[in-house]
Amino acid sequence: MKVLAAASIKGGVGKTATAVNVAAEATRDGVRVLLWDLDPQGSATYLLRAEHHLTGGGARGLVGAGSELAPHVRATSVPGLHVLPSDLSLRYLDRHLDDVDRPRRRLGALLPPLEDAYDLVVLDCPPGASLGIESALRATDVLLVPVVPTTLAMLTLTQLEEVVAARRRRPRFLAHVSMLDRRKKLQRETVTTLAEREDVLATMIPNTTVVERMGPERAPVRTFAPRSVATAAYEQLWHELTPMLWR
């Protein structure tokens, strides 16, 4: 089982869009995917039509001793894609983690019992670099950071890289261009700079209304716009990631 996390210090850059669409693309290759929504906002949970609620004490229950993920998992309308829904109480995740021993190992320690049931776990992280995120990243194989090609985005990219680099067990760090608007000169220039970096993937997700429509449609782009540019881009992103997850 491999763990792929969509994370970024910056909010609103397309983490959830990437997590949900990449997860959906992976199922088309026969991969059994669990999307774990770690963001208290629950956008991924909403997009996958699951209930925004965790039974058994919410975040505190999750972090507590003897907790299990399996009972919280739900099927989605995408065959082969299951979701571990978010809960508002996840906003106190850091506080609960603070109360336990080795908080950075806590979230990862919940995954091994699912080893046989899934090939891939996709983590949709909230923005930031909190303790909860660090805990999630410790169990992560590939950390995928969507970057909107602006100068500021570059800055947050380096910041997150520092957070990761400081840890002994660290995921492979990869970025991809998100919400690219080719009409903007500044973005075109930034993309050229980004393309030189080895940790930036070749696939770029364009800024398109199809992605925005995921909200009202409550589904990954492939479900309602299979022939769109966006769907093709997410498919390509998944294919670029596959050999990095399994060699």
Partner: peptide
């Protein structure tokens, strides 16, 4: 548990052995 799949472009001959090492990298 739930099934994991690897899609193939052609069917396998159901009487012939299969070597794992010939499968493409993946889960």
């Amino acid at each position: 548990g739930p099934p994991a799949r690897l899609f193939l472009s052609a069917p396998l001959v159901p009487t012939e052995p299969l070597a794992v090492t010939t499968l493409p990298p993946g889960p």
